[in-house]
Amino acid sequence: MQRGKYFKIILLGPALIILAATAAYPLGFTFAMSFRNWQLAKSFTPQDFIGFDHYVRAFTDDIFLNSLKVTLEFVALSVPTSILLGLAMALILQRPTNLNRFVRILLILPFAVAPALKGYSWRFMLDPGYGIFDQMIDFLFPVLKDIVWLQEPFWALTALAITEIWGWAPLIALVFVGALGVIDPEIPDAARVDGANDWQVFRHVTLPLLRPIIMLMTLLRIIYSLRLFDQVATLTGGGPGRSTETLNFFIYRTGFRFLDIGYASALAYILMAILFVVTFLYVKALMRDPQNDS
């Protein structure tokens, strides 16, 4: 259809106006502010232009470097575990038995729980006094009995990762079950005829066929992990100390607690730059994926 010049303007207009206002304008504004001094508590308008000072300051700021480290540690703790656990679950639930079909329906539920609520509820379940998970872990691994989960830097970050893994692994499993379902059964069968055992079939046939979707889900998980915020606010508050203060949470503190708009803008742009690289890879992989024609 190649008609209606005005009609397509009417169709696109509202969406483009809102996107310009809620994406393009903030991008430009935040970029401009990242080169200026602006303490909202002291002044209602942006102050002097200071060039790249905020960016230079960031890379000598221990608190920023710490938040960067925490964010990367969080990615390392939560992304591979959720992908591997999701893959394991998918292999278990692969065949469409009645039990498996029922479990697949349940897999949606953890992801449907709001991230903020995951934080609240895991804080309760990990409570050292009476939390049910604290008691279960103490029972299963007596070595860990004395650990006060949210009071020790490593375990607090692990607890954050658990909330993410609990939410994502089942969803990833669902994605992989779908991907396993479209593999032509003749391909693994042919490998078995050639004498491959189950492990070899998985390692050399199934896994390579799943590679594109594993890649895609890994990138998606990295994007979401880099932006982690809700559970930090509701589970750990960034503590103990600053041991779970992710980059996104540090930006929030800088901008909306200490009202240092200029510095927060520069930090937000650093986060954007990191996210941009991963998002670029994701969009590229998404566009290239042959089973995806849109």
Binding site: T22, P26, R227, G255, M272
Partner: peptide, 9 residues
């Protein structure tokens, strides 16, 4: 887009 970028302005 990270939410904070939109939130600041």
């Amino acid at each position: 887009l990270p939410g904070v970028v939109v939130l600041i302005p």
